[in-house]
Amino acid sequence: MLKRIHFRIMLLLVLAAGTGKAASVDTVSTYSAAMKKNIKAVVIKPDSYDSRQQWPVVYLLHGYGGKYSDWISKAPGLKEAVDTYGMLIVCPDGGVGSWYWDSPVDPAFKYETYVSSELVKWVDEHYKTVKDKKGRAITGLSMGGHGALYLAFRHQDVFGAAGSMSGGVDIRPFPLRWDMAKRLGSYAEQPDRWEKHTVINLLHLLTPGALSLIIDCGTEDFFYEVNENLHRQLLYRNIPHDYYTRPGAHNWDYWPNAAQFQLLFMHNFFNRKG
Rank of each mutant, 00 (worst) to 15 (best):
R246K: 12
N268F: 07
H204C: 01
R237P: 02
G77C: 06
H267S: 15
K121T: 10
A137V: 00
L213I: 08
Y59V: 07
I239K: 03
G147Q: 02
K133C: 06
W99P: 01
I72L: 11
H197K: 07
N227G: 08
H146L: 09
L60I: 10
G95A: 11
G167V: 05
H62A: 03
D216L: 03
H6A: 09
H250F: 04
E220F: 07
E195D: 13
F265C: 05
I239D: 02
D132V: 05
H62C: 07
C91N: 10
V90L: 13
Q260A: 11
R246F: 11
G274S: 12
V28A: 12
Y244E: 12
E125P: 01
H231V: 01
H204I: 01
L263F: 15
K273V: 14
A148R: 03
L176Q: 14
A181Q: 06
A259G: 00
T245Q: 12
A258I: 01
L205H: 09
D102I: 02
A108V: 01
R154P: 01
D170N: 15
S24Q: 07
E189M: 03
R136W: 14
L211Q: 00
Q53S: 15
G218S: 04
E112S: 12
V123F: 15
V120I: 06
V43T: 12
P46N: 12
P92T: 13
V226F: 06
C217K: 05
Q54M: 10
V25R: 10
H241V: 03
D132E: 11
H62S: 07
K273H: 14
E195Q: 13
